[in-house]
């Protein structure tokens, strides 16, 4: 088994958070007992914590052979971000990312277990080995690339701004002084924070919450991936994507745990093979076409064979 020690920094740091809880506990305990009018306790043993149960940790990812031996691959996807990943009334996962995931499962010869993730938890799901692969509209960024290993891309993306038709936002300068809705842990949030730190941003954990908030008039605009903005405004009368391309042009790719080179290599080869059969164009026809209609041409979004 390939072993890569988890970075020691988080381990030590984590132990100290638990330590903090315990230290606080001692404080209460001591204060409580001292106040109990008993003579002061002279126990120093209380400090050694039972909670810091450390085991010799090794990398907790599975390579291709292990996944195939176990017969199941765990893929982290969105469960509330139609048309990319959502759950239908039957309880089944559907969407653009899901088609890709299903194909990976088929070609690996294993079952696919979909694990719903939130935008902000995608990195930690990989880091902690809760999933083998993330296919959740994951935009490739330098900061994320320090934490996870991205695969070759399968989509292009920039940011977009959705706003009510009655008060459309067509220029980023218009956002000043407005209430801007974003989803936590997305590139929209980091972009606004770095470029426009003074803007008034309201952050939600889930896509459902963000879109609800926009519908209920809790914000003046929603900044998100332009793919998402276009998809959503196309289906929601009364809203427009006033800015269709904001910020740098990025790509969307799958990601595996840092150091899982075996799985990454297999998946990148798979992506090249899929490119030969125009897999993502078919995927687009199947899942995105009905949403985008003629607003977008497939080539504006789809990346085949990992070649931008």
């Amino acid at each position: 088994m390939s072993t890569i020690g988890l970075a020691t920094r988080p381990r030590r740091a984590a132990a100290s958070t638990l330590g903090l809880v315990l230290a606080a506990a001692c404080l209460i305990g001591l204060a409580g007992c001292a106040a109990d009018s008993d003579s002061g306790p002279d126990t120093s043993a209380a400090g050694s914590s039972p909670a810091s149960a450390t085991t010799g940790s090794s990398a907790n990812f599975r390579d291709v052979a292990q996944i195939q031996a176990d017969g199941t691959i765990r893929i982290g996807v969105f469960s509330d971000k139609a048309p990319f990943g959502s759950v239908d009334a039957q309880g089944d996962y559907v969407g653009y990312d899901i088609e890709y995931g299903n194909r990976i499962g088929q070609d690996l010869g294993v079952e696919v277990e979909y694990v719903p993730v939130e935008a902000a938890s995608r990195v930690s799901f990989l880091e902690t080995g809760k999933v083998d692969l993330i296919l959740a509209n994951f935009t490739v960024t330098a900061e994320r690339a320090e934490k996870v290993d991205f695969l070759k891309p399968y989509m292009k993306v920039a940011l977009g701004v959705a706003s009510p038709e009655s008060a459309p936002i067509t220029d980023v300068a218009q956002l000043a002084g407005q209430k801007i809705i974003v989803v936590k842990g997305t590139t929209a949030e980091t972009y606004l924070a770095s470029q426009y730190p003074d803007y008034d941003v309201i952050k939600y954990d889930q896509y459902t919450e963000a879109t609800s908030a926009l519908l209920d008039g809790r914000g003046d605009a929603w900044v998100t991936d332009n793919t998402e903005a276009l998809a959503w405004t196309t289906q929601n009368p009364g809203f427009v994507t006033g800015i269709a391309s904001l910020g740098p042009a990025d790509t969307i790719a799958g990601a595996v745990q840092k150091g899982n080179t075996d799985l990454a290599a297999w998946l990148n080869n798979e992506l090249v093979d899929l490119g030969k059969e125009d897999f993502f164009h078919q995927d687009y026809e199947l899942t995105l076409k009905s949403v985008y209609g003629d607003v977008v041409s497939p080539d504006e979004l789809v990346v085949e064979g990992g070649q931008v």
Binding site: A53, G129, K130
Partner: peptide, 14 residues
């Protein structure tokens, strides 16, 4: 604390 941190401490997939 347990969900985000303990996994990093122990390496156990929680």
């Amino acid at each position: 604390v347990f969900y985000f941190d303990l996994t990093l401490v122990t390496g156990v997939n929680l």
